[in-house]
Design a binder for these strands. Structure first.
Length: 365
DNA sequence: TATGGAATCATCAT
DNA sequence: TCAGGGATGATTCCATA
């Protein structure tokens, strides 16, 4: 049977939620920012609505630049926890439209506002039924959450993902297998999902501009430039081939927090203080998921914006803040002693997460 | 010298 | 240019047998 995958993407999610909550924002340019807390607008744009986009504001750009582009815009701080609660409800609705499969997963949340749904069985491989499913999803989200989303439908995840960005906001796009080439080939390689700035520039230097160029390029050449894994992936992706399954994600493999210091410094006290707060956050996330960690990584970014990281792996899993801080402080002091340049930002991350079990202490006996 | 895990680096995308 | 934060996967490094 023809495989059909559906990708849903909430439209300008954070800004849309703010608009919904605050009717006075209607019609205004809304910019949701992550602020570093240093000076007024030191930080980056997380999301903005379409009014803001008209003046050239984009996700990722500095807030001060956004302000220059549109001084009238409303700048709001991110409220991540709140958006997550909305996301949880939205995801539940999405999930209800995925296949109910005995074997293999049919639902995959890939970020706070995006998901893949395997709908092969429900639609019997029929793209017009898939289109109907997409419309139903959009309607239910609009009814229950007063939010819009964009839907992409295709024979695999790659095509579905790229289709969803064709018509935005509040759009729906179907790319059936016979349309893959006409859809993909004219695009710039940077439009391919998985190709960012770095890869695009490298391809450009090789004379590869469009997806068609990439699809026709010698694979040996690609492998020598990008390595085996990535080389093969590039060649396949350009042809619209993607066999990756829709896979349920059991939460993230790593949990991390990073933040900017009040001012650049090499003084251990303020850095340690910040590290403590970050560790607190990380541990509370860990707790809420009932997990333990085995690796600790500390990241610092100095005033020249160079990044340094160091990590440690514990002999056995731990879950207390004390242990995390002990290890993190140790790594931090190493980084401090190696650096001449003042630190600007510091971060802590834990990995090798696993279920808390078999960690009985003497009290358990 | 092969191998697997640890540490670091690069990339994505918002 | 200006420069926030989070996560992943690939590559490189290193200890051990």
């Amino acid at each position: 049977m023809q495989r059909i995958v559906l990708h849903v993407d909430m439209d300008y999610f954070f800004a849309a939620i703010e608009e919904r909550e605050k009717p006075e924002l209607q019609g205004k340019a809304v910019v949701v920012c992550m602020l570093s807390g240093r000076s007024g607008l030191s930080g980056a744009v997380s999301t903005c609505n379409y009014v803001a986009r008209e003046s050239g504001i984009r996700a990722g750009m500095s807030c001060s630049k956004a302000k220059k582009l549109n001084p009238e815009a409303v700048f709001l701080p991110v409220r991540k926890d709140f958006y997550t609660s909305v996301s949880d409800r939205v995801m539940q609705i999405f999930r209800s439209y995925a296949d109910a499969r005995e074997t293999g997963d049919a639902f995959e949340q890939i970020s706070i506002d995006e998901a893949f749904l395997e709908i092969t069985e429900k639609t019997g491989g029929d793209f017009s039924l898939a289109f109907e499913t997409g419309i139903q999803i959009k309607n239910e989200i609009k009814d229950k959450e007063k939010l819009t989303c964009s839907v992409g439908i295709g024979p695999n995840k790659l095509i579905a993902k790229m289709a969803s960005s064709v018509q935005k906001p509040d759009g729906i796009t179907v790319i059936s297998p016979d349309k893959i080439e006409s859809f993909l080939f004219p695009l710039k390689v940077s439009k391919l999902w998985g190709i960012g700035n770095v890869t695009a520039r490298k391809l450009h230097e090789m004379g590869i501009v469009t997806v068609k160029d990439l699809a026709e390029h010698d694979i040996i050449n690609l492998i020598s430039a990008f390595g085996k894994t990535r080389g093969i992936w590039l060649k396949q992706a350009a042809a619209g081939i993607d066999d990756s399954p829709v896979k349920e994600r059991g939460g993230t493999e790593q949990i991390g927090r990073i933040a900017t210091l009040p001012e650049d410094t090499l003084d251990i006290n303020p850095i340690s203080q910040l590290l403590d707060r970050l560790a607190e956050d990380v541990i509370s996330k860990l707790d809420s998921r009932g997990l333990s960690f085995r690796t600790v990584t500390v990241t610092v970014i100095n005033s020249k914006f160079r990044m340094y990281t160091k990590s440690r792996t514990l002999n056995r899993p731990a879950y207390s803040k004390q242990v995390l801080l002990e290890v993190a402080r140790e790594i931090l002091s190493e980084l401090l002693s190696e650096s001449q340049t003042e630190f600007r930002r510091v971060g802590v991350r834990i990995g090798q997460l696993q279920k808390r079990m078999g960690q009985k202490s003497l009290f358990d006996y």
